[in-house]
Amino acid sequence: MSSVSAGADPGAVTAVEVTEAPTTGSPAAAPRKRLADREGALAWIFLMPSVAYIIVLVGVPFALAIGFAFSDVTAGDPSFDWVGLRNFRRAFDDPVFWQSLTNTVIFTGVSMVLIVLLGKVLANILIANFRGKWLVRFVVLLPWTTPVALSSIAWLWMLDSIFSPIDWVLREVGLLGEQGALLGSGSNMYWLGKPGLAMASVIAVHVWRITPLAAVIMMAGLVAIPRDMEEAAQVDGAGYWRRMVEITIPLVLPVAAVAALFGVVFTFTDFAVVDVLTRGGPNNSTQVLTSWAFFRGIEGGDIGQGAATALFIFPILLAAAIAILRAVRRMDVR
C-alpha cells in the first residue's frame, strides 16, 4: 500500500522535501511581541479618546451642575457659596416647576407611545419591497436628518397664528372659518396660542422628528426575525393580524423597547422644539424641565436654580432607563 502511494504520486515526495528545506530565521532576530500584539495596551490606547471625551464634556459639566445646584452662583455673582438644599426647596415651592414636571411627563409619555407605534408602522414600510422604495425610504428618514433648529423653524411657520398653511387647508376643505364648521368659525386655529393645542403641536413636531430613528431601530429588529418564523405562521394558517400580534410583535419587542428608551431619553431631554415653537408658553403650558432650567439658569441668571431644576431630570431618566432595560432582559425571546 505504501509503496503504491509513493510510486503513484511522485509529487508527494517532493513536497515533503521542500517543507524540510527552509532553515529557521537568523538567531539574532529573537521573536518579540510588538505593540500591535499587546491587546491590553491597545485597549487603553483605543479607549483613551472616548474616555477623555466623556470626562471633559460629560463628567465635568455634570459635576459642575451638581456643585452649582448646592450653591448660590448667579450670572452676576459667580462666587461659590454652599447653600445646602435651598435651591431645591425654592424649586419645589415654585408652581411653575411642578407644571414643568407634569408637562415633561405628558410630553414624554404621549411622544413615546406615538413614536413606538408610528416607528413600527414606518419600519414595516421600510422593509417592504415595492417600486420606488428608495424614494420612500429617503423621505421617511428626512425629518431625522434635518437639523432640529431648521426643522423646528419650518414648523413654526407651518403653525403660524395667521399664515399657517394648515389653517388654509382646513379653511379650503370647509372644516374651519365658516358658520357651523367642525373646528369653529374663527379664521385660524392659533396652534401655538392655546394651551392644549400648543402642547399637541409640540408633541406632534417632536414625534415627527424622532419617529424615523425609532423606525430604523425597529427595522433592524424586524429584519433580524428569521423569515422561517413568518412563513411557518403562514403555513400554520395564521392571517396577517395574528402573525403580527402573536409572532412579529413579541419577537420585535426587545428592539421596540430600545426604541422606546431612545424616545424617552430624546424627549425628556429635548429643548429645541419647545424653545423654538413656544418658549414654554402660552402661560407655561408647554414649559418642560429643560426649558424651565434654561430660562431660570441661563436667561434668568440664577445658575444655582437652573442647575437644581436640570438635575431633577437625572434620577427620573435613570429610573426609566433601568426599568426599560430590565424589561428587555426579562423578555427572553431567543
Binding site: M229, E231, V235, L251, M331, V333
Partner: peptide, 29 residues
Amino acid sequence: PPRARRIAMVFQSYALYPHKTVHANIVFP
C-alpha cells in the same frame, strides 16, 4: 395563500416560535 391549502410544513430550522412554550407552539395552528 398557504393557509388555504390544507398543508403542513416542517422547516429545515424547525421555525419553532421561540417565545411560546411547546404547548403554545403546537396549539397555534
